[in-house]
Each structure stands twice: as C-alpha cells, then as structure tokens.
Computed example of a mutant assay.
Amino acid sequence: MIVIGANVLNPFFAITRIPEALGDGLGALGLGAYGTLSVILLAYVVLGMFMDGLSMLVVTIPIVFPVILSLGFDPIWFGVVAVIVIEMGTITPPVGLNVFVVRGVAGDVPLTTVFRGVMPFLIAMIVGLLLIIAIPGIALVLPNSMFG
C-alpha cells in the first residue's frame, strides 16, 4: 500500500513542482549546504518519530533528492546518512516506533526503562552520523571499492 501510495504521489509532485519549490525555499533561507542538510535531517528525525522508515523514504526521497543533488552532495553518501537518521527517528522519544516494538516483546519492562536503554544507542548514532558528515569518505569506502 505504501508503494502504491508513493506511485500516486510522485506524479502529483512532478505536476505541482513541489520539489523545486521546496528547493527554492530552502535555498532562500541562506543556510548553505550543511545548514540545509541539517534542516532535512531534522525533518527526518521528526518524521521518524511517527512513521516507519520505508514510508518516509518512499514519500520524501522524491522531494529531498533533487535538493541534495543541487547542494552537491554524493547521492550514495546521502542514502547512508538518510538511513541512519531515519533509524534515529524510530528510536527517538516520544513516539519512537521501534521502542514500542521492543516494549511489546518485553512486556514486563516499563516504557520509560526501554527509552532509557535506547539512549546510549541514540548517542552512538549521533556520533557516527557526525563523523560521516564530517568525513564523507567513511560512508563511501565500500561503494568506491566496488566501482573503483
């Protein structure tokens, strides 16, 4: 159903030129490439609190991808960054969906305990994300070795 919905939504985006308008709006903010990237990643974290990863990717990539390309970022690098940020969103309070899955499996553990247990992983993901943003080659070593 998600893929069918995205297939209906993508032609709508093409006709209404929403990705171009979003790109122009982000460019008008004057944040620069990394500022715009930060806004996009923050949006992914917020969406991740309420949606699952596949839904976010299928719905948002047609909007965000042209903006990322226009900023000069590597598309493979952005794919790695997007997956990390989406997973960060799925464990972020208040509604992190993966946390509720863990809560369902460990039924006798309070939800606050599960959220506290997730925090070290969230911090590790943030540190890893900052490293990948600062040194893009980290995320591109394996893809470059395949095509190099």
Score class of each variant (00 low, 15 high):
Val109Tyr: 02
Asn98Lys: 02
Leu129His: 03
Ile126Trp: 00
Val99Pro: 01
Ala124Gly: 07
Phe121Tyr: 14
Ala124Lys: 00
Val114Tyr: 07
Pro93Gly: 09
Gly89Phe: 01
Pro94Ala: 10
Leu130Asn: 04
Val85Met: 14
Gly107Tyr: 00
Leu111Tyr: 02
Val85His: 13
Ile86Phe: 08
Ala124Asn: 05
Ile126Arg: 05
Val95Leu: 15
Val99Asn: 13
Asn98Asp: 06
Pro110Met: 04
Val101Ile: 14
Gly104Ser: 11
Val80Met: 12
Leu97Asp: 01
Gly96His: 04
Asp108Lys: 02
Met119Lys: 13
Glu87Phe: 09
Glu87Ser: 09
Pro94Leu: 04
Leu130Arg: 00
Val109Cys: 05
Val80Tyr: 07
Arg116Lys: 15
Val85Leu: 14
Gly107Ile: 00
Val118Arg: 01
Phe115Val: 01
Gly89Ala: 08
Gly104Leu: 07
Val83Gly: 06
Phe78Met: 15
Val102Gly: 07
Val118Tyr: 01
Ala82Thr: 12
Val99Tyr: 01
Phe121Lys: 06
Val83Gln: 12
Arg116Asn: 13
Ala124Thr: 04
Phe121Cys: 03
Gly104Thr: 07
Asp108His: 06
Gly104Asn: 08
Val102Arg: 09
Val80Gln: 10
Asp108Gln: 07
Val114His: 06
Arg103Trp: 09
Gly117His: 00
